[in-house]
Amino acid sequence: MDDLRLDRRGGLPPHLRVLAARYPRGMWTGHPNFSGLTSFWLDRHLMFRGLQARLEREAASFLDGDNDGRAFGRAVQRLGGTFVSQLHGHHQIEDLHYFPMLAAKEPRLQAAFDLLDADHHAIDPMLHALAGDADALLAALAAGQPAGLAAGAFHDRLRGFARLLDRHLADEEEIVVPVILEHGDRGLG
Rank of each mutant, 00 (worst) to 15 (best):
A153L: 14
L16P: 07
G36C: 00
E174V: 01
F83N: 03
L46T: 11
L164E: 08
G36M: 06
T38V: 15
R186I: 02
D166R: 14
A170F: 07
A60W: 02
R157K: 15
Q86W: 08
E58K: 14
P13D: 09
H31V: 06
P125H: 07
L115V: 05
H31C: 06
R25F: 03
I175A: 00
P100C: 07
M101K: 15
E58V: 13
T82Y: 05
A162I: 01
R108C: 09
P107W: 14
H88P: 02
F154A: 06
L115G: 03
A53M: 14
R167W: 04
L87M: 13
Q52C: 15
F40L: 13
Q86N: 10
P24H: 00
A134R: 03
L188Q: 09
L149I: 09
F99D: 05
L109F: 09
P14K: 09
D3F: 14
G65Y: 08
A60H: 10
Q86D: 13
G80R: 06
R74S: 11
D117E: 11
I180N: 05
A20W: 01
A139I: 02
E174D: 13
M47A: 04
G132M: 09
R57D: 15
G26N: 04
A21N: 06
I180E: 03
N67F: 11
D171P: 05
F113D: 03
D64S: 10
L127Y: 00
A140L: 04
N67W: 03
V177R: 12
L42P: 05
H15K: 13
A151C: 07
F83P: 00
E172A: 05
A170H: 07
A139C: 03
R17A: 15
D95V: 01
T82H: 11
A111L: 12
A111K: 12
R157F: 08
L141W: 00
D156W: 05
N33W: 02
V177G: 06
D95M: 04
R57G: 09
D2N: 14
E106M: 11
A104F: 10
W28E: 05
H155V: 01
T29E: 11
Q110G: 11
A153F: 09
G36F: 08
A153H: 12
P125L: 01
R25M: 06
D3L: 14
R25Q: 07
F161D: 03
L51K: 10
S85I: 02
R167A: 11
R157A: 13
G26A: 03
L96F: 09
G189T: 09
V84T: 03
R167C: 08
S39V: 06
L79K: 08
M27P: 00
A59T: 11
H155A: 12
H120I: 02
R8K: 15
L42K: 01
F62P: 03
L181V: 00
T29R: 14
M126S: 02
L149K: 13
G10A: 11
P178I: 05
Q145N: 10
G10T: 13
A151V: 04
L87G: 00
R25A: 10
D114R: 15
